[in-house]
Design a protein around this nucleic acid. Sequence first.
RNA 1: GUGGUUAUAGCUCAGCAGGUUAGAGCAUCGGAUUGUGGUUCCGAAGGUCGUCGGUUCGAGCCCGAUUAGCCACCCCA
Length: 449
Amino acid sequence: MPPSIPKGTRDFTPEQVNRRNYIFDTIRKVFVAFGYQPIETPAMENLSTLTGKYGDEGDKLLFKILNNGDFLDKADADALAARDSSRLAPSIAKRGLRYDLTVPFARFVVMYQHEITFPFKRYQIQPVWRADRPQKGRYQEFYQCDVDVVGSDSLYYEAELVQIYDSVFHKLGLPVAIKLNNRKVLSGIAEVAGIADRFVEMTVAIDKLDKIGIEGVRTEMLGRGIDATSVAIIEDILQITTIDALKTRLAASETGAKGVEELETVFDYLSLAPVHNEVRFDVTLARGLSYYTGCIFEVAAKGAQMGSIGGGGRYDNLTGVFGLKGVSGVGVSFGAERIYDVMLELGLFPDDAAAGLQVLFVAFDEATHRYAFQALSQLRAAGINADLYPKPVKLAKQMEYANKRNVPYVVVVGSEEMAQGQYTLKNMQSGEQERVDLAGLLHCLRERG
RNA sequence: GUGGUUAUAGCUCAGCAGGUUAGAGCAUCGGAUUGUGGUUCCGAAGGUCGUCGGUUCGAGCCCGAUUAGCCACCCCA
């Protein structure tokens, strides 16, 4: 039986972990620089915390954890007899794996509301799980990197989050387009088109514009029961590229006008500080998630065929479902897995020698092995990443190991070196060697490490 | 949940109209080389061709089922 791992999950090699950490570290540093604090929440939540928060589709994609012990004892007998899985599930699974970081965060805020100082700025980098069918850039276990602020409706934070996106992707050397829209603008469009009641259908269709084109969106909207006149109005508005033009067009809708005003405020803040990446208003940005109420964000990598690598928005009432009303939040998420894939594709990871081993000691016999061990210990104490081949075997074998470990330097110690209190330091790239004493060794490795 | 596609050595893949003993590269191990690796040369080991069934004198190849991976849709990071 060959070993395997569950569908949609992955192992990571040392090289991959180093690269992933490079991304996580970069993101974390930016979060901290903007004044956000870390929290962590459990991998599993009570199922009741999760269900009903992501729509019917989301509920289907929740991983449920079978109760321990005699779980059939408390199973819903009727549901079991009727073979009704969805009704049976809550009676045999009280816990589930978290589906995202936003809902657990909302729960956290409600539970700790008396300890939290608002506005509360938190970041969270943890894995989430979805029972989705895996495909390219899509896994059942993946990391999200979330930053959110709750307890303030200031549009300053929308601008700040755009700056965070800009800063992270600038540091990673990954050029992106940061797209902004506003849920109220989309509401306004629905109103102006006279289909306020079909708002959700409209946004779902518009969201696919990139993928299926304007023709596809038209077909989709017509198929979802939106009449041709309304579709024509919507199509017309989707051609708009500037906020000014949109302002005129949506003047008749109070909500729409409010959305436009919010966008203006955000762009006004952004005009006061330089950004490195393209930041643009995009009426066609919709995003499916139903809890967004104000500004919405999405990030697309330039020069790579990949879905969005980040997204987020303003949600006025996220904590409401947990009993805390009137707390507004806004946040964005970084899709670390997709960022990884894109950076790999574009060759943007830096050469990663610094994170690895700097020097390997090789010895010829027991005596020199002991001698090498002493020097090794001193290098390690001095903060140099050093290792010693475990046994004084044939030198070629040890050198081969050094090669595979990709070590820049090898220290060869034989009886001659030991007799003189010296070491042979070999540069594995150039092949050059020099004899040095311990001080020289420390000096050279510090210098070139 | 729907559709497509693939499954042969540890990895990446060949394979013929259905026809003896299923191949290559890389990786592994040994040797050329008992104080020097990444390049070279020689050799070895490694497989019930995903699983089960069917057609056939004969199946890695054809048919059916099943499992798993990948890709796309729904949805999403």
